Computed example of a mutant assay.
Amino acid sequence: MHPSPPYAVRLADEIARQIQVLNNHLAQLPAGQATQVLGRILDAEDGLLGRVTSLVITGSHFAKDHAERGALPAEVWLALGRAANQLDDIGLDLDEHADTIRALDTGPTTGAAAVQPAASALVVRRRR
């Protein structure tokens, strides 16, 4: 008989499963509810994105300590550090649009006379 995995491993597996459930729900929610969920997911500090970023940062600290002792290759620490930095940058980029996402949830406040937003061509911008 195999020993049961440690609690933290079971927790990580459960969180991954819950994220998949959330993904499935998000794909099927009406626009207003999806906007609410998306706003919470993308919150750079308290949302899912912020928490995952924090988790990767913690993993980077762990890897640094182990790399300094020779237990892990330095490349592992560097890769986790890069991932943490990139996630943080993504969070900052998305944070610029948080108000727009929240505004979709509230909708127009002026009633029936409100002008519907015009569709625009999708333009890909990349900032480096």
Rank of each mutant, 00 (worst) to 15 (best):
L11N: 13
R102M: 15
I90P: 06
Q36E: 13
E75F: 07
L122V: 12
T110C: 10
S4E: 14
L55P: 02
P5S: 10
L49Y: 00
Y7W: 08
L94A: 02
G111Y: 09
L78W: 05
A67W: 09
N24C: 04
H97I: 08
H61R: 12
R127D: 02
A74R: 11
L94K: 04
E14A: 06
D95T: 04
T58N: 07
P108Y: 02
L80I: 03
A112R: 09
V115D: 04
G59H: 08
L29H: 08
S4H: 05
P108K: 01
L55F: 11
A74P: 05
S60R: 07
H61L: 08
T35V: 14
P30S: 02
D89V: 09
A12G: 00
L78M: 06
T109V: 11
L55K: 09
H2L: 10
R40D: 14
G70T: 01
L87T: 05
N23L: 03
L104I: 03
A34S: 09
Y7I: 07
G39M: 05
A121I: 11
G91A: 00
L104K: 05
E96R: 15
G107Q: 07
H61Q: 14
Q18Y: 04
S60Y: 03
D105K: 15
P5C: 08
E75I: 06
D46Y: 13
P30A: 05
L38N: 00
F62K: 11
A121G: 06
G39R: 13
E96K: 13
L42T: 06
Q36K: 08
I101L: 14
G32Q: 12
A63V: 11
S54F: 13
R51I: 07
P117D: 01
Q116R: 08
T106K: 15
V115P: 01
V124A: 03
S4N: 07
A84W: 08
N85L: 11
R40Q: 15
A103W: 02
A16Y: 06
S54V: 06
Q28D: 06
L48G: 01
A114Y: 08
A121V: 12
Q28A: 05
G47W: 09
E68G: 12
F62T: 13
T109C: 02
H66Q: 13
I15N: 05
L72G: 00
Q86M: 14
R82C: 07
E96T: 07
P108V: 00
L11M: 09
I90V: 15
T35K: 03
L42K: 04
V115L: 09
A63Y: 05
D46P: 11
G59S: 10
G32T: 11
H2A: 07
A114C: 06
P117C: 00
N24R: 13
R17H: 06
V115G: 00
G47Q: 11
Q116A: 08
T35M: 08
T106G: 12
A98C: 05
S120E: 12
I19P: 14
V52T: 06
H61I: 08
L78H: 07
